[in-house]
Nucleic acid binder design. Structure first.
Lengths: 268, 268
DNA sequence: GTCGGTTGGCTTACGGCGTAAGCCCTACTA
DNA sequence: TAGTAGGGCTTACGCCGTAAGCCAACCGAC
């Protein structure tokens, strides 16, 4: 008696409430808020006020659903007014706009970005972070029509992908840290010959791999840089402040420019 | 009566058989063969001839075990004779050797590499693919002693990380594809407005995110490039052969060189 | 030699997961 | 108005990570 906004009475079972889009959107919400691991079929269904098995009427498998979430993220490029579908202002402008669009969606969904980057592709050249045949086609044909020969197109494609992949994974990774936990804040030595005293180590964080801690409220407690053994890692300690600083914004544009220079330099 | 090499009889329960190292090594074996998702506590234990709960005497949690696996991979750098711990032949040689060492371990463990790249870090600057305080210290202090000022060290550190991350994720991703499945080989349109007919879609592949199909024997069946709608993606179709080609080896060295040029160009 | 403690296995059990199978109400179509 | 298909629900299975506790084998002290 309280919640049905639309037509006839409705026992709460009205068909058609669910749809692929609605499910994928809700899943993305959960991932953004609590990480990939929290997006279980039961959790997604429950947020939709529905039983888990109902989702299977729309997605044959959780993997397929996650693929749809990835698609949904990538498709944010279609809505991005800054991103152009063709090179009206030259290939450089086209690629720069595309790159900034990708960065925008990567930063909008830091918990989901590892999904975009690591989910296995259907073919070896359907690369993250584009991951959509339509956008790949757009990029290849645009460069082609800008006078790139085939080798140059392929070189640009691979440069573009690996640059964005690396930069954005680094940047989004820096924002989604492991849960720092309460008690001892010491790190595992990890690099050298570690005898490992006992069972000191972090806690939960993720499940399979790309799952990332909730973080939400972290970001302050991470700085006790005196936790690190100063004697063992003097340079890290000296540069700690610089390492923690976030120049990603400015540096991205500069690095992007250099990557584009590299492409330009390869043109005949 | 058959398998005990060492001391007294042994009912098969002799303590000390298990160790952190042995467990981590076995886990890495399973991951290399069958992907991260296959490395369940029960599966690992069973390969060791032991019950799952016994592993918890050595690792408090599966996550901690996976961290140890990542450490183990990164520590392959320590054994790599091509990688030097200091810049006896200059910083360029040092970084190039380090980069090639990282590439070596990335390609040696393509199923595990996404784990290295996406596992949340303890601090925002403990970046993949180095992920070890000892190696980070080594790199920072080496560059420092080579005359880099602090800003230059940090710039080099970030360039190095993001370059390797992007390039190697692209390369290892190209080798670990989704299971192509038997029946219809058509892709999901994914990019444009896809109405999506029914439930056609791939099968199993992964679990959380970084899990990747077993692949082992794939790599042949991936080429039916006529599956792609030629009309919709003419440029992809035209470039399909080039896209499928693998120049990663040569291109890595060239791209690495350019990245190092970029660092050199930033020096005062 | 015996004996207590510690170590490193094992057993049991719980709740959550993805999902196969099948039911049944509702809404649309003829 | 009957028939049908779609979209929910229920039940159940086998796997997962792991908490709790048990017990044999070893080890150092007497």
């Amino acid at each position: 008696m309280s919640s049905e906004p639309s037509s006839s009475a409705g026992t709460g079972r009205r068909p058609g409430r669910l749809s692929r889009d609605l499910i994928a959107e809700t899943t993305l919400e959960i991932i953004d808020e609590q990480g990939v691991g929290a997006a279980s079929m039961r959790a997604i269904a429950s947020r939709l006020g529905v039983e888990a098995m109902s989702l299977y009427k729309h997605f044959s498998t959780r993997d397929v659903l996650l693929d749809a979430v990835v698609d949904r993220i990538v498709q944010e490029l279609d809505q991005d007014p800054e991103v152009h579908r063709d090179a009206t202002d030259g290939w450089r402008d086209y690629l720069a706009r595309l790159a900034r669009g990708v960065r925008r969606y990567a930063l909008a969904h830091p918990h989901a970005f590892p999904l975009v980057t690591t989910r296995p592709a259907e073919a070896p050249w359907v690369n993250p972070p584009l991951r959509s045949l339509a956008w790949i086609e757009s990029m290849l044909s645009t460069l082609s029509s800008e006078g790139f020969d085939d080798d140059e197109v392929l070189f640009a494609y691979r440069s573009f992908n690996s640059f964005l992949l690396g930069y954005l994974l680094m940047e989004s990774g820096a924002h989604t840290l492991r849960d720092p936990q309460e008690g001892d804040g010491s790190f595992a030595p990890s690099g050298s010959n570690d005898p490992v005293p006992g069972g000191l180590s972090p806690t939960r964080t993720d499940e399979e791999a790309a799952e990332i801690a909730d973080a939400e409220t972290t970001a302050e407690k991470i700085d006790p840089q005196d936790d690190i053994e100063v004697a063992d890692y003097p340079t890290i300690h000296r540069l700690a402040a610089g390492l923690a600083e976030d120049h990603f914004g400015e540096e991205f544009d500069r690095a992007l420019d250099e990557m584009l220079d590299g492409i330009a330099g390869r043109l005949a």
